[in-house]
Amino acid sequence: MISVRNLYKTLGTQSILSGINLQIKRGETCVIIGRSGGGKSVLLKHFVGLMKPTSGEVLVDGEEIAGLPERKLGAIRKKVGILFQSGALFDSMNVEENIAFPLREAGIKDLKLIREKVAEALEMVDLGGEQKKMPENLSGGMRKRVGLARTIVGRPACILFDEPTTGLDPIASDSINHLIRRLQKRLSVTSVVVTHDMKTAYHTADRIAYLYEGRIYFLGTAAELRASQDPIIEDFIEGRSGETD
């Protein structure tokens, strides 16, 4: 579905990604873990052309998108939805209008249908009945879930989740984990989940990729990750900084 070859990205003078190779298979859930500031969000933005690689290729459904002009990317973005780490809600619109936005853009005019789909999407993220609130009156976790509802409402074939559970309470996190699984099982959505929440990683992943120093350091199943003897990987999943008091 998405395939990245030899991706390099430099921002300013800082080299963020240095030679990423990764294939996301159709229908799978691939989790990307890595240190904060390691470039996970940057990598994700390349998958929908929100950022252009310094060099390398990004292919979505076999089509090279790195060189496409902004106006040609519309078709890709109908297929691949992204949940931003910050939620990125439109603050001039209330919750309902935010979630209805992709539907209206897709040309749906039937207001009743839109209202139903919005309510359904809100139910999926456990926010039923919050339609009329403005984004500034939502908590961080609620904003993220509204963002999630906006991302899934248009039923993209592939969804990129940038830290879907960070900032949520354990119960809400668990429900989002189940939602990601459900989307995969029922609607055969392809998912890429960026997270540093190991619980989310283990729960949702078919495969886990560990982004380390700008490269994919490890790629394998959750069981393989847990079984790994590599100290760099062990430190990350155990959460060891190597410091003592």
């Binding site: 990317l73 973005r77 939805g81």
Partner: peptide
């Protein structure tokens, strides 16, 4: 990131 969100929604 609202402008990126617009772009992401095509």
């Amino acid at each position: 990131e609202q402008i990126d969100a617009l772009r992401a929604l095509g």
